[in-house]
Amino acid sequence: MAEVRFAGYGGQGIIRSGIIAGKAAAIYDNKYATMSQSFGPEARGGACSSQLVVSESKVLYPYVTDVDVLFAMSQEGYDKFEPGLSENGILLVDEDMVKHKSPRGNIKVYSIPATRFAEELGRKIVANVIMLGFFTAITEIVTYEGMKKALPGSVPEKALELNMTAFDRGFEYGKELLKKKNG
């Protein structure tokens, strides 16, 4: 079982990221995936988050309790949800948006200049999809194939190609980074 927290601010596609990853896991990877999003006062303005539980069997408790992966795209999101990250968890950050502290326990940190990459691709809005590619490469909670199948229908049709490219950009960057760390 894996628990993922997606955090950022409104407009970054944080909820959408949770849905795409959940859809890949539940429909294309044949796992169970439950996604819940924060609504109401806490979801307005600043911090915006969604949570995803991916499991081999039916998800019984729908919320995250000891987060395995924190997917942070804003400083506020990082500050708010970092304490909930497991001591053995993985922290993924958009380094253009988040300045993180030195990690606690055995937490592993992986950074990607997602927003800068998105700007290079011409659309800042795809930063979350770059992060999703990065997330897929690093955590392997969802498969590359599953994610590529989940993207159509989850992003505007006109922007599908751009999103596919963005996803690959993040994915490749993640794979390279892993190679460097492990090699």
Partner: peptide, 9 residues
């Protein structure tokens, strides 16, 4: 609300 706002297959 939990079930209503929960996204699943």
């Amino acid at each position: 609300e939990c079930v209503g706002h929960m996204t699943e297959k």
